[in-house]
Amino acid sequence: MGDLHKSTACAGIIVVVLILACWGALAAEQLTIGFVPRSLGNPIFLDAFENAHQKALELGVRVEWLAPFDFSTEGQLAVIESLIEQGVDGIVVSVNDVPEIQAAIQRALAQGIPVITFDADSPGSGRLFHIGIDNFKAGWEAGAALVDIVRARGMDKQHLTAVIMTGEPDALNLVQRIDGFFTAIGGKLDLQVDEVLHNQDNVDLAIIMVEDYLKHNPDVDVFFFVGGWPFYVPSDAMPAFKQWAHAGGIAVGIDIFYDALLLLRDGVLQYLVGQDMASMGALGVELLVDYLRTGRLPGTDFVEVGLTYASQENLQELLQIYEPWLVK
């Protein structure tokens, strides 16, 4: 009996020592993942922010969420350089596919810091892989929805004019969405693009540009929002947009969140295609930590997250799912 007690006590001590040793090793190896959205000022990344941190807590790693408040390549470069300087263990970025960014990513890779992209890809940089939606498909779905709406209104034989709002011209994801959009309407609508508005990934600027354009061009037929920059305010905060839409203007776009659904409810927007930013945040941490800890890669350089769709048909259901952000 005594021997049994002694053996049990020794085993308990060994287990405790092993647990402490593992805990110490784990603490010593706590990873830091740098997460670089396009900007802090674009609320669309807040889903990713929360979910990335939640996943980091689960995995016992640190997430550093850094970006310029307003998007700028220079600001992103400074942030990426600071992460390299800090010696983080990995970086997740949403960037423009431009040479400066490519070079910065290559510098990080050269220093042994793995880099993956989310939302907006930079395939020319040599990043390990990309997490995001199928942007072409998202654009295609928006285009197809537009065709259905136009046909439903009996306007498919008319010559239509359109305006496109996008963010940065060098953002690859936005370019792909526009390509998908025009592919979907190709041969089906007589759509002439009068203007392409670049809002520089700035939410406030996007709202101003929409209002300003429609005040001066109320006769435009279609508004295609490549992203949801101006969807964070109530419809009454955009009177020209609201008036234009109620007068028969058709607006479709990409990005679904609670405020955007309210615009859909108010009849200002007719159709939305959503991207799962929460999954992008969580997957970004999860897959990169997995790579850092095990060396495993996803097996593909494009990890796709799903699309969601919003129209009057599923609006009430979605309003129950999405929660208000109240950031604006």
């Binding site: 807040l46 929360e50 941190h53 307003d70 950031v327």
Partner: peptide, 19 residues
């Protein structure tokens, strides 16, 4: 409380305010 869930409303306002 070691929780950032549902912190978006605050963190975004703080960033906006600070900037």
């Amino acid at each position: 409380n070691n929780s950032v869930t549902n912190s978006r409303k605050y963190v975004f306002r703080i960033w906006e305010d600070f900037n």
